[in-house]
């Protein structure tokens, strides 16, 4: 990959820092009137999600990271790897458990996810913001209780336990916000 000069730093730019692909969150030009210019940048490590801060001398170059975000369909998991497919080309990609990380809690076959590819390999998986999931196990529902706001635990088909209102029955479909892990509403097929 080409080297990127600090003058081209912009938020969202992907670079290799300490061997890992990172994305610039923000960067600041620092320069005393009569002195060396610096660029101070905050990065998100795209593998670990951690935020790091780095300073470069203005004019330094940093290796660009070949990072791409693609929409892929989740097809299956074999326990070790999660397999995804490009619906246009049918090309398949295998992501490690580490790369999938927390997204595994919501992944259902045929869901379309945003996958971050680094040199063609998945390094991060973002599930759809809202997932429609079936309740596989929960206490029997309390009919009519739609106002109390009380909740009970319920297991969804991916095995994740969420909190749902008391009126939700086993076997029902619910809409879940995958960013917060919270129940949103009942859902239909």
């Amino acid at each position: 990959m080409p080297n990127i000069n600090t003058s081209e730093f912009r938020s969202g730019l992907k670079l290799i820092i300490d061997g890992d692909p990172c994305s610039i969150i923000e960067n600041e030009f620092v320069k005393p009137g009569k002195g060396q210019a610096f660029v101070r940048a905050k990065f998100r490590n795209l593998r670990s999600g951690r935020v790091i801060e780095r300073t470069f001398k203005s004019g330094e170059s940093v290796e660009a990271a070949d990072v791409l975000e693609v929409s892929l369909q989740f097809i299956y998991s074999d326990g070790d790897m999660f397999h995804f497919m490009d619906e246009a080309t049918f090309e398949q990609y295998a992501a490690t458990v580490d790369a999938v990380a927390g997204a595994a809690r919501w992944l259902k076959e045929q869901d379309t996810c945003t996958i971050t590819l680094w040199n063609g390999t998945p390094i991060a998986v973002t599930p759809p913001n809202f997932a429609t999931l079936r309740i596989t196990e929960t206490e029997p529902g309390v009919r009519g209780d739609t106002a109390s706001g009380a909740t009970k635990p319920a297991t969804v088909e991916t095995g994740t336990v969420i909190k749902v209102p008391l009126f939700i029955e086993q076997g029902e479909l619910v809409k879940v916000d995958t960013r917060t892990g919270e129940y949103v509403s009942r859902a239909r097929e």
Binding site: P32, Q36, F38, R40, R54, T55, K57
Partner: peptide
């Protein structure tokens, strides 16, 4: 303070510029 000046081969004046600024 987050600047690997050694690795960047930074000289005395550049170190002082950086420390002064941040």
């Amino acid at each position: 303070r987050g600047f690997e000046s050694g690795a960047a081969g930074t000289d005395r004046d550049e170190c002082l510029d950086w420390l002064l600024s941040v």
